Simulated scan of single mutants.
Amino acid sequence: MYLPRALAVIYVVDSADHSRFPLAKRHLHQLIQQDSLLPLLVLANKQDLANAYHITEIHDALALSEICVHRKLFLIGTHATMDGSEISSGIEDTREFLAQIISENSAVTV
């Protein structure tokens, strides 16, 4: 319902919850098939945990190569600390991605 007005899709997965990746993959593929060019940002959360999938494993588990042939894809590892004392570089990368997408969209619509 909201996808036609979206500038990008941000999809967050729990890198340490391996059992839910098949479901996450299915939902992502169903969602993203509606627009083949909409940029996709996948945030792989909980990268600080020892049992977290690495970025390449997440790419494979979500079969991103199947849905990202012609779209911009950003796969960023993130984590948060319990006390909020640290901001991961992934959060900064996410901010930059969003700024880029908004800037590109503004240039097209002006």
Score class of each variant (00 low, 15 high):
Val12Asn: 01
Ala6Ser: 15
Arg71Tyr: 02
Pro39Leu: 04
Leu7Asp: 11
Thr81Leu: 09
His59Trp: 12
Tyr2Cys: 10
Ser89Trp: 07
Asp83Ala: 05
Leu38Pro: 01
Gln33Tyr: 03
Ala6Trp: 05
Ile102Asn: 13
His27Phe: 11
Leu3Ala: 11
Ile91Gln: 04
Glu57Asn: 05
Thr56Gly: 12
Glu96Lys: 14
Asp83Ser: 05
Tyr11Gly: 15
Val12Pro: 09
Phe74Ile: 13
Asp17Phe: 05
Ile32Leu: 11
Arg71Met: 04
Arg71Val: 03
Leu64Met: 04
Arg5Lys: 14
Thr78Ile: 01
Leu98Asn: 01
Ser15Tyr: 01
His29Lys: 12
Ser65Arg: 08
Glu92Phe: 09
Gln100Cys: 12
Lys46Gly: 00
Gln33Ile: 11
Ser106Val: 15
His79Asp: 09
Ala24Met: 05
Asn45Ile: 00
Val108Asn: 07
His79Ile: 04
Glu92Tyr: 08
Asp14Phe: 02
Gln47Phe: 01
Pro39Ser: 02
Leu41Phe: 07
Met82Phe: 12
Ile102Arg: 13
Leu41Lys: 04
Leu31Asn: 03
Ser85His: 09
Ile10His: 00
Val9Asn: 00
Thr81Ala: 06
Arg5Tyr: 07
Lys46Glu: 01
Asp48Ser: 07
Leu98Asp: 08
Pro22Phe: 07
Leu23Arg: 09
His54Ser: 11
Glu104Thr: 03
Met1Tyr: 12
Tyr2Met: 14
Ser19Ala: 14
Ile32Phe: 01
Leu3Val: 06
Asp83Gln: 11
Phe97Gln: 06
Glu86Ala: 15
Phe74Glu: 15
His18Lys: 11
Tyr53Pro: 02
Leu41His: 02
Arg71Asp: 06
Leu3His: 13
Met82Leu: 15
Met1Glu: 09
Tyr2Trp: 15
His18Gly: 15
Gly84Asp: 02
Asp17Ile: 08
Ala44Glu: 00
His27Met: 15
Pro39Glu: 05
Thr78Asn: 02
Val12Glu: 06
His27Arg: 12
His79Gly: 05
His29Asp: 04
Glu96Pro: 07
His59Gln: 06
Ile101Glu: 06
Ser65His: 14
Thr81Pro: 08
Ile87Phe: 07
Thr94Arg: 00
Arg5Asp: 10
Gln33Glu: 14
Ala99Thr: 14
His59Cys: 02
Arg71His: 12
Leu3Cys: 08
Ser106Pro: 07
Gly77Lys: 04
Thr94Asp: 02
Ala44His: 00
Thr81Trp: 02
Glu57Gly: 08
Leu41Met: 05
Ser36Trp: 05
Phe97Gly: 08
Ile102Thr: 12
Asp17Gln: 00
Ala50His: 08
Glu66Asn: 10
Gln100Ala: 11
Glu92Arg: 11
Asp35Asn: 10
Ala44Ser: 09
Phe74Ala: 13
Leu40His: 10
Asp14Cys: 04
Glu66Ser: 06
Val12Tyr: 02
Ala52Leu: 06
Ile101Arg: 01
Ser36Met: 11
Thr109Leu: 13
Val42Met: 06
Tyr53Cys: 05
Ile102Tyr: 12
Leu38Gly: 01
Arg71Trp: 08
Ala24Trp: 02
Leu43Cys: 12
